[in-house]
Nucleic acid binder design. Structure first.
Lengths: 155, 155
DNA sequence: TCATGTGAGTAAAGCAGCTTTACTCATTCG
DNA sequence: CGAATGAGTAAAGCTGCTTTACTCACATGA
């Protein structure tokens, strides 16, 4: 039998939580170091959700899995700080289109780079391909094959 | 090349978060179904931290990674609902020893069973051994070999 | 033409679960 | 025996959300 260290008796759920906590923590720390200490993970998720042609606040709410009021608050915050703009919606109505500014696109670029650097470093200690494969299987087993649910704060 | 479905382009960090969210959500749902809808994950963690000979509120705070006031509030809550008792500490001082009641030990037993049932079911879709191994490696790479940090709400 | 509905946005209060600040009190040590 | 130590507690503050309730632009159709 292969002995894998002191984590044999640790619950899978606990290990999943720790893994996520540590990887996300390291990611956030590195982003803070390069000048993004003012952005939380949810802001990066919002940028991802808006990166194509933007979206209305209500669409953003659906993609983030929060109420439209919460999405509106996030947009207020990001707008004050210059990461998004509210434009009149091309299809009129009361709608407004929330679009990214160059500052947000720059953040997306940097965050993507940091994420891939981190993954490359982890590949020195773990089989990241296998990890990714098994995680995908677990996600599909619990959620089904139809797309991915929004990632919400865990617990 | 092996094609593993539509998750190829998904960030590892995102996948980790989704995996944790879905597994913890399923665990919590099943516990609620068997009568524990009133207990959050942090309560289960507290039970784990107290299950030997109990601990003081300050020790509990360290093990949970929160302030001693937060630990005190959690203990207040659990005490009102009959899951823990505050006893005078055998070594005196101002200390009090927080110990589990049989109700809490019963919860620990049921939660452990649910966790292992869930893991067994996941083993039908994924290689849980590999997942556990790679997660352990990631955790050690980011935290070191000295024990495991407290699991805190993510993000 | 205009009432009535529909859907997006917004305003404000409420709430959970923490932290921060500030204290009380029993014990110990110089 | 007076001050330091360390556990516990009280109360306010804060963040990031939800809930409740509203406004307003446009669409529909009698």
């Amino acid at each position: 039998m292969t002995w894998n260290g002191p984590d044999e008796g640790v619950e899978l759920t606990f290990l999943l939580g720790l893994g996520f906590q540590l990887v996300l923590g390291e990611f956030t720390r590195r982003l803070a170091e390069v000048g993004y200490a003012d952005l939380r993970p949810v802001h990066g998720m919002a940028f991802q959700a808006l990166k194509g042609d933007g979206a209305t606040a209500t669409e953003l709410a659906e993609r983030l899995g929060v109420t439209k009021q919460a999405a509106g608050q996030i947009v207020d915050d990001l707008e004050r700080r210059g990461y998004v703009r509210r434009e009149p919606h091309p299809e009129g109505g009361r709608r407004k289109l929330v679009v990214l500014t160059p500052a947000a696109r720059q953040h997306l670029f940097v965050a993507g780079r940091v994420l891939h650097e981190l993954e490359a470093e982890l590949a020195g200690s773990a089989d990241v391909g296998a990890l990714r494969r098994e995680l995908s299987r677990v996600v599909r087993a619990l959620h089904g094959a139809d797309g991915l649910p929004p990632l919400r704060p865990v617990w």
